[in-house]
Amino acid sequence: MAKLPELYLAVDVEADGPIPGPYSMISLGIAVVGRPDLTFYTELRPISDDFVPAALAVSGLDRDRLLREAPPAAEAMAAAASWINGLRRIGRPVFLAGPAVFDGMFVHWYFQRFLGKSPFSNSGAGIDLRSYWMGMTGCEWVSSRKSIIKQQLKLNDLPHTHHAGEDASELAQVFEAVLDSRRRQE
């Protein structure tokens, strides 16, 4: 039996503060690189009364509506894990974010806290777009921002909206272009 290919899952979160626990992940988007038909999006009910108004404002989500209508974190994360695990029939899911530190911190913490395990492994390890770009191009950190990567790859028509689903799709398209660029250099 042939080994299944890696599936890079571009992940984006919106949160109402800088760290999970005291603050909440309020939306989660996932898009499979190279497969625009494979996406996942959910909003989440806040888990804490604390929030940073400026952080909440970035997403444009209404906290009161989320408290009334969004699924509880355990339900949202179970749906995300089920969707990710369902992809295992076609490939091996690999976490991808930009930056992986922020998005990965929330996603890993939420999976561990509400499900007891992460579909991305116990370590929560994954690919960081900026680090990958630095390794591929030899640039410095300051030149590895996603906006610069998009500019260098002529992806100027990809907006960054601060909607987790849309931004996950944006990241998937950026990483697909990065991989294509790497292949052309080989």
Rank of each mutant, 00 (worst) to 15 (best):
D50P: 00
P119H: 00
E186W: 14
S82F: 08
L61V: 03
F175Y: 08
K150M: 08
V13Q: 06
R63Q: 11
F111L: 08
N85F: 04
E69G: 05
D157W: 14
I149F: 03
G29F: 03
D103Y: 10
I26C: 02
G104I: 09
L38P: 02
I148S: 12
V107E: 12
H163C: 11
A81R: 14
L87R: 10
A79Y: 10
L179G: 01
T161I: 06
G126D: 13
G60I: 00
L115G: 08
V32L: 05
L158I: 15
A80W: 13
V94Y: 01
F51C: 02
F120S: 00
N85P: 05
R183L: 14
L87I: 07
E69A: 12
V13L: 08
V11Q: 03
S118I: 11
L96W: 03
A100H: 11
S121C: 03
S118F: 08
V142N: 14
V58G: 06
S118E: 13
P18C: 01
S131V: 09
Q173E: 15
D128R: 13
T137D: 07
R88K: 00
P22D: 09
P119Y: 00
Q151T: 13
L9G: 00
A57K: 11
K117R: 14
R92I: 12
L38R: 10
L7V: 03
Q173C: 11
A172H: 04
M134S: 10
E170Q: 12
L38Q: 04
R88F: 05
Q151E: 15
K146T: 15
G86E: 09
T39A: 05
N122C: 07
F111I: 06
K3D: 09
R63I: 10
S169P: 08
L7A: 03
T161M: 11
L158A: 11
S48G: 04
Y23I: 01
D103M: 07
L61N: 08
L179P: 02
E6P: 00
F114L: 07
Y132G: 03
Y41V: 02
V11T: 09
F175T: 12
L66Q: 09
S131Q: 15
A31H: 04
L56V: 03
M134A: 11
A2I: 06
D157L: 10
F102T: 00
